[in-house]
């Protein structure tokens, strides 16, 4: 998966969870929780959706490392491509 494919995947799943957002308005370098109203159930749903799409299971302990879309790309890239 290329970086832009990962970026697209995360944005798409995010829009499924928060249909009111405009993906064009999301800054991929800013904390998602500062841009989108997400509670812990939404975050869990996002992680499950990403797991279902990529096979990568993100442990809770790693959540603090993944705050922005770019963080997702950096985190997922090696894990997807090493599968």
């Amino acid at each position: 998966m290329t970086d832009s494919e990962i970026r697209e995947l995360v944005l798409r799943e995010l829009c499924n969870i928060a249909p009111e957002i405009d993906p064009a308005q999301i800054d991929s370098t800013i904390n998602l929780r500062d841009q989108v109203d997400l509670d812990s159930m939404n975050v869990l749903d996002l992680m499950v959706a990403i797991h279902d799409a990529t096979g990568v299971e993100i442990p809770e302990a790693d959540y603090p490392k993944i705050l922005t879309i770019e963080d997702f790309v950096r985190y997922l890239r090696p894990r997807i491509n090493n599968k």
């Binding site: 812990s40 869990l44 992680m47 499950v48 299971e57 809770e60």
Partner: peptide
């Protein structure tokens, strides 16, 4: 935290 380590992502608990 301990409990969730043992669970797959689909079975994880929220507080």
């Amino acid at each position: 935290r301990e409990e969730n380590l043992r669970r797959s992502i689909n079975d994880r608990l929220l507080y």
